Lab assay of single mutants.
Amino acid sequence: TIDDAFRAIERAIQAENEGRYREALKHFLDGGEMIVTAAEKEASQKVRNLLLHKGKEVLEWAEHLAEWILE
């Protein structure tokens, strides 16, 4: 659900702030994927587009974090 997705993102932010970057990455990926999944089930085109945009933002952040971890 969207609530689960945002809880995962909150955990990711907390982990990132505490320097637990790999854990943060996992939570960002989980949250982003949950948002995209919820968007695919959404009946309203406007809400679907907003959710897809937010999911994409979260997944892009996860990608940047992963690249930073690997440096």
Rank of each mutant, 00 (worst) to 15 (best):
T1D: 09
D30I: 14
W68V: 08
F28N: 00
T37R: 15
K56A: 11
K26P: 00
K41W: 07
I2W: 06
R20Q: 05
L50A: 14
G31C: 09
K41D: 06
W61R: 07
E10I: 15
G31N: 00
A5F: 09
E33I: 14
K26T: 06
T37G: 09
L59R: 06
I9D: 00
E40F: 15
L70N: 14
R20Y: 04
E63S: 13
G55Q: 05
H27M: 12
R22C: 15
R20D: 06
D4K: 10
E71I: 09
E16C: 15
A39K: 02
L29V: 07
E33R: 15
D30G: 05
S44L: 12
E18D: 09
A39F: 08
H27K: 02
E60H: 13
E23G: 01
S44G: 04
A39D: 02
A24L: 08
L70S: 13
K54P: 03
L59T: 04
D4P: 03
Q45E: 14
F6E: 04
L52Q: 05
K56N: 05
K56Q: 07
R22H: 10
W61P: 00
L70D: 10
A8G: 02
L65A: 01
I2N: 02
I35A: 03
I69M: 09
E71N: 10
Q14I: 11
I13N: 03
L52K: 06
I13D: 00
K56V: 06
E42Y: 08
E71W: 07
D3S: 10
V47R: 08
E10S: 10
F6W: 08
L52F: 06
A8W: 08
A38Q: 08
K56E: 05
A12K: 01
E40L: 15
R11T: 05
W68F: 09
A12W: 07
A24I: 15
H64R: 11
I9P: 00
A15N: 02
A43W: 12
F6N: 04
K56G: 04
W61M: 05
T1E: 08
G32I: 15
V36I: 15
R48G: 04
Q45A: 09
N17W: 11
L65G: 00
L25G: 00
K46R: 09
A24R: 02
I35Q: 01
F6H: 05
A39R: 01
A39G: 02
L70I: 14
F28S: 01
E16T: 15
V47F: 09
Q14T: 08
K54S: 06
A5Q: 02
V58R: 00
H53L: 15
K41P: 02
R48W: 07
Q14E: 08
R20H: 08
I2T: 04
D30Y: 10
E71A: 14
